[in-house]
Simulated scan of single mutants.
Amino acid sequence: MLILGLLIFLGIHCVGFFPEWRQRRVDGMGLLPWKGLYSLIALAGFVLIILGFQRARLDPVVLYAPPAWLGHLNSLFTLIAFILLAAAYVPGNRIRARLGHPMVVAAKVWAFGHLLSIGLLHDVVLFGAFLVWAIVAFAKLRRRDRAQGVTYAPGTLKGDVITLVVGVVAWALFAFWLHGALIGVRPFG
């Protein structure tokens, strides 16, 4: 179930790699129906990931036992990922101007940090799949940007500060409260 969910969720998120195919679907059905179908498929994949991950946690398979300090390093990686995620939405920041696709980089950093710190099979499948997808997605998106001459507006110090504050606050809320409530694991006890 976890693998099927990953194939569906990450698969639909690969549609952007094929802009001509995507545009033919949009032209054939209209933009709003396309967005609705895309969202339903992504949601179905996400639900399968959650259910599959929950089931896999009931019978864990240990692949490796990382040292405890990698958990602390993962906290740093996750903080960086939240700042990168904020950079995808906060206008006028230099992170977005530099990276172009900070959300995809956030997924890479998040997945890599979790792979370092958790050695269970279901975690490796989940985070490994996201890491591979994010590496491929970033390369494809940057190549597309260069081919199309896409440039991003230069950021400002104000945009950087807002991005940093939003990212740190969101990380703190998630790390100290939401992660335990939603995932069932409290990174800080």
Rank of each mutant, 00 (worst) to 15 (best):
L141I: 10
R57S: 15
Q54D: 14
R57V: 12
L84K: 06
A153R: 11
R24K: 09
W69E: 11
V161E: 07
Y64A: 01
G149R: 08
A81F: 06
G92D: 14
I183S: 08
L63F: 10
L182Y: 03
Y152V: 13
R25T: 12
I8D: 05
A107F: 14
M103H: 02
F17T: 09
F127S: 04
M29L: 05
V185R: 13
T156A: 06
L164G: 00
Q148W: 13
G92K: 14
V166Y: 00
R98P: 03
F188H: 04
I95H: 02
I95T: 09
V90T: 05
L164Q: 00
L40I: 15
P187A: 04
A44S: 07
S117K: 02
R94T: 15
W34C: 04
K108I: 11
P19S: 13
L58K: 10
L121D: 02
G52K: 00
D123R: 08
I49Y: 01
G16V: 05
A44N: 01
Y152A: 14
L2T: 03
A87H: 05
F46N: 02
P60V: 07
L43K: 03
T78P: 07
A134F: 08
L70S: 06
A87E: 05
A134L: 08
G119T: 07
H13W: 11
V15I: 07
K35N: 10
R55C: 03
E20A: 01
R22V: 01
G113K: 03
G159Q: 05
L126W: 09
H101K: 07
H179A: 14
F18K: 01
P91G: 01
Q54S: 13
Q54Y: 14
L141R: 11
W110G: 08
A172S: 14
P33E: 09
L131C: 04
A68M: 13
V132C: 04
L2V: 02
A129E: 10
D27F: 02
A181T: 10
I3R: 04
L182W: 06
S39H: 04
L182F: 04
A147G: 02
R22F: 00
G159Y: 08
V124P: 00
A172V: 12
V104H: 00
F130W: 15
A137K: 11
W110R: 09
V26D: 07
L63W: 12
A129D: 10
A137V: 11
A88G: 01
D145G: 10
V15Y: 03
V169R: 13
V165M: 02
F9V: 00
F77V: 07
A181Q: 12
G30S: 06
R55D: 13
G11A: 07
R22Y: 03
V47G: 09
D145S: 14
